[in-house]
């Protein structure tokens, strides 16, 4: 199925969870936070399955003033 990660289209397996997506992208869950359709999904809910056309944002620390 197709999901949008940072506005880019990605093909992912049907029913993939948020945690599985992060592992697939080789991102450390402890240093990332995830929003789906502009809503934060807490780490405890990363077993939630994504749905087609979900918009995923993965945020991480960055320099800031």
């Amino acid at each position: 199925m197709r999901v949008l990660i940072h506005d880019e289209e990605h093909e992912v397996p049907e029913g993939i969870t948020i945690g599985q997506l992060l592992r697939r992208l080789d991102l450390d869950q402890a240093v990332c936070a995830v929003a789906v359709n502009a809503e934060h999904v807490p780490r405890q809910q990363h077993d939630r399955a994504l749905r087609a056309d979900d918009r995923v944002d993965i945020l991480a620390p960055m320099a800031g003033g």
Binding site: H6, L27, L59, A60, P61
Partner: peptide, 22 residues
């Protein structure tokens, strides 16, 4: 120290690298 949050590009992992410094 102040920091921000930005989209993490999985190919670059700049955020994870930055965080390791801070």
């Amino acid at each position: 120290i102040t920091v921000s949050l930005r989209r993490e590009n999985p190919r670059e992992r700049a955020g994870q690298a930055f965080w390791s410094y801070v």
